[in-house]
Design a protein around this nucleic acid. Sequence first.
DNA 1: TGCACTAGCCTGTATATACAACCTGTCCGC
DNA 2: GCGGACAGGTTGTATATACAGGCTAGTGCA
Lengths: 253, 253
Amino acid sequence: MNVHAKPRYQQLKELIIEQISNGDLRPRDRVPSENELVGSTGVSRMTANRAMRELTDEGYVERVAGVGTFVADLKAASHVLEVRNIADEIAHRGHTHTAVVLSRAAERADAEVANALRVEEGEKVFHLVIVHKENGAPIQHENRYVLAAFAPDCLEQDFTRITPSAHLSAISPLQEAEQIVQAVMPDRPVRKNLQMNEGEPCLLVRRLTWAQGRPVSFARLYHPGERFELAGRYAPPGMRRSRRDSITKVESE
Amino acid sequence: MNVHAKPRYQQLKELIIEQISNGDLRPRDRVPSENELVGSTGVSRMTANRAMRELTDEGYVERVAGVGTFVADLKAASHVLEVRNIADEIAHRGHTHTAVVLSRAAERADAEVANALRVEEGEKVFHLVIVHKENGAPIQHENRYVLAAFAPDCLEQDFTRITPSAHLSAISPLQEAEQIVQAVMPDRPVRKNLQMNEGEPCLLVRRLTWAQGRPVSFARLYHPGERFELAGRYAPPGMRRSRRDSITKVESE
DNA sequence: TGCACTAGCCTGTATATACAACCTGTCCGC
DNA sequence: GCGGACAGGTTGTATATACAGGCTAGTGCA
């Protein structure tokens, strides 16, 4: 084997992907079994197994023990948006991130917050309002509630230097998140804090974050419609494209 | 080995994940080498290799040949939104999808479309305007341009039965997509077609789709702000959560 | 005819072995 | 003192082998 050649399992994967792409193999078609691939390509069964296993993980094929391997149905159009930490995004563009803490307080959860965080009404929470700026232009109005029990020293943090999200991660790795994106009209305080024109819409991201098996933080993130874009790049499972290609972009000025 | 036990490589993965979760292993810490794992757990090196390789794919650890394996840095907050085919989404909710084709025409690409599709100005494209409805309520205004060379029989399709996206997939599997989400105010025709109130914002998804190595379609998808939400659920790489958990949801009425 | 069993293929996992490529620290010669 | 060669550990890949367990079709018996 040529030293500079791609690994065999990778070559085999690309061979199958090529046949799927150009129509030689269509959805539901049977893919040669591992032993057939051993016979036709000369690799060992373990190598064929690895290739097919990775194609399974990547969504190209489906396998049934005892039956065979089949080309997966097209997942028609499933596109992905990646939403990154605001400070990281800004840094990634080489811009400077600053933040202004408008308010920080310990509160009792009202009905809406309690419902979002899955706790009893009246549970102690910290309430933060922060405006994030990119090169001085306001880009995100963060209205966040943090479960006090999870982050007891939350109010002592310097949120001009560390985002609440980063502080939460530092306490315990974030397990998962749910978020909802909507277009809304900002209320007056949000509009003024983001220095938006009247009649301009906001992109609103509502995000619920889990850690240690329970929701620990709920945030409403408002972004000015004219200056903010969520961008995502999607490649089908296994195109071996770096995850880092997904970016979130801001149009500033 | 007990017949009913989980595979050994899986047990080993969970062991490492547990140590990362509870803080025994912290980001940048060194993870035992494959040979050390062989010694401490009794599995073969190939089994340890598979476990660590999958942990790498799933983002828990990073490996450097010749050096070792290290716990990956927390990707602070990287959240994902999955955007699915509109007809699938509606069907998934058990609602009925209908579509109205407002216009279909062969055109020459103007500067903006040509730029988006990376072709020369004047290239032949098909232009479709379709309103998608969920249980009768307009939910998406689709303004799409399709490269004529890629889908020559595009204008003959019955787009009340098959979405343009599905038709494109049928020609050739879609390779990748770029999309940008923004909050905007609709122009008059869009507002009327979506039966929106004046002053109500739109969620605008601009999507560029690749197939066979080149962009083949560019679409602007407008959604009424008050009735539409993009929802995403995110779990860190390797939580073994089904991809299907990610949903896009519409609040209807 | 109908049913149970089995042969044979398939995937899934586990192991031992081997070699290549990569990285780092050390030792030796200049 | 400096630099290069080298040893030893690490990951990455490839193979042969083995056995378990799932599924199907066909055989053969009642």
